[in-house]
Design a protein around this nucleic acid. Structure first.
Lengths: 321, 321
DNA sequence: TTGTACGCGTTATCAT
DNA sequence: ATGATAACGCGTACAA
């Protein structure tokens, strides 16, 4: 491996001169600087990241933690993060699994963005307590070194429920997410609050866990109980897709017998026929905001928690009731 | 930040004793060892990754390069990679964008897995020339430090075309991928070879670029030219979905007027009604093999290029012609 | 422009 | 048999 020592030898100068030259320090003349840069080029010099990080105590890398790599949903969020970080001279690495949790205390990354429910809040608080900077996208966590960028789950769930009620539906199934999910809890709370304001509405909760299979399970029950048209609010789109397929297979029509709305506006919803109604929000914005917040934390700036606003996407999957 | 120095001070021993103790070196008695471990625990000691990497010259991290984070398709591949790597004491980071290319020469990662067409082959050869270990999943590249784990594109494309011909179709559209894509070129070559063996088949090539939009474009043309039932082979599923939607919108039926097959068996294909025929392969296997190969390269073992086999998934999107 | 201490963990060498 | 001293890896930045 080529080090500044090799360059120094070849250029006939000291290593400090090389370091200054490479870092554009005005302590060296433009002339020797060019000479050294040329030699570095010739030798294919690349600074050793470990040595630099060791000295500088920063890596200029931000890690984002996902519970798994299944991604479909995260692509845009990550893209948004990367854009901002690269612009500010930082790199992004995507991590998954508890092994990689050590990268923050090991100082391999300068900050973390967490969208991984399996990353324990106590662990995060502990890290924050040791001065590490964390942005959470999937929970509420209060600590000076932790910032939140959360979806406006309550608004979204209210929008969805009110849309169904406005369309005239009075029998409403709600398929929840997993117990541990903050997003699911928030959405469910808002559902209950909204329904309470409409005593004429019957609301039946079915437990799900955000994956397609649980949507299918829920749909089986709904189909089995079918007597008259009903509305279904799945707390995410993936489950809605599961419901969608199962209902279709049972020869009921979406938007006619079963009225369906999801949450997230994942790409897949565009492909369904009739189009799935859902709750949308800018995934890119979510990513860019998260990045900006983590950089602010690192810079020691004062930061307020942020919220991502949501909108209703109407679709033919919900008809008049 | 807590370092071994702090532990040494607290334990009243030297830093080397601490290091030996932490690394289980028999040079220290079990007794002092336990004492030191306890203190390390108390102080929340975490070794500094940079210092360790600097000394050891290995990071025990493998980087996988993706052209973007859109992921839907990569999830399983990444999961497979992670499984193998974690089992072998390595970590995985997911990278995207040319900034992160430097991590290999900077020795931040011990090896790279490339599934990113925008990562230039010359750059990879150059890295390999400098002793870096690379596994490519998206091109042919011959160098002792580079290993290939490629899809059996030709078999897949032949399977698809033969399936269409067997079903009695004689008019065949093929929607290609982007010019630069190795997978697309391979698949297209196999299409041509297969069609040549069937002079009664008319084959029309439409240029695409692997995204949904280009499938839609292709479908517009196919619909405009429609006179009699035709078969369409999209060189990936995403484009097939684009074709699917556009054909449906034009009120032609998939599997009746337009017979459609894709490639990749992405999750989405399961949701289409009728089910999209496609070419399947184990994405997990692709990931595990890639990881195994990169570890073998690092270990200095002799490795042969690997191939991922493919199978045909029939679907109602292709009917009798 | 250069010598050198420093950041932190590893390990060979020397001393007890 | 135990454990301490010191050199090393590489880049940075202060003092000279």
């Amino acid at each position: 491996m080529i080090s500044i020592k090799d360059i120094a030898k070849k250029a006939g100068v000291s290593i400090s001169t090389v370091s200054y030259a490479l870092n554009g320090n005005p302590k060296v003349t433009e002339e020797t600087r060019m000479r050294i840069l040329k030699i570095a080029q010739e030798l294919n010099y690349v600074p050793n990241a470990a040595a630099r990080t060791l000295k500088n105590r920063v890596s200029k890398i931000i890690g984002v933690y996902l519970n798994d790599f299944s991604g479909a949903f995260y692509g845009e969020v990550l893209q948004g993060m990367k854009e901002v970080l690269n612009k500010r001279g930082y790199d992004l690495i995507v991590c998954s699994g508890s092994y990689s949790h050590r990268w923050l205390p090991q100082r391999m990354i300068d900050g973390a963005i967490v969208l991984d429910h399996s990353f324990a809040s106590e662990e995060l608080l502990h890290l924050a307590g040791n001065g590490h900077k964390v942005v959470v996208l999937d929970r509420e966590l209060n600590h000076p070194n932790v910032n939140q960028v959360l979806l406006d789950n309550k608004a979204g769930a209210s929008l969805a429920v009110e849309f169904l009620i406005d369309k005239g539906h009075r029998k409403l199934y709600v398929v929840s997410g997993p117990k541990g999910s903050y997003d699911s809890r928030q959405r469910m709370q808002a559902v209950k609050q909204t329904v309470e304001r409409h005593p004429e509405v019957e609301c039946i909760e079915i437990e799900g866990n955000f994956d397609k299979e649980s949507g299918e399970e829920a749909a089986k029950r709904i189909v089995a109980e079918y007597k008259e048209p009903a509305a279904v609010f799945c707390l995410n789109d993936e489950m809605a897709i599961g419901v969608y397929n199962t209902v279709m297979k049972a020869n009921y029509r979406i938007g006619e017998h079963i009225h369906l709305i999801g949450f997230d506006n994942i790409e897949l919803t565009q492909y369904t026929q009739p189009r799935l109604a859902t709750i949308d929000y800018s995934k890119r914005k979510w990513g860019t905001l998260a990045s900006e917040q983590v950089l602010k934390l690192i810079a020691g700036e004062e930061v307020e928690h942020e919220r991502i606003y949501v909108t209703l996407v109407e679709g033919e999957s919900v008809g008049r009731g």
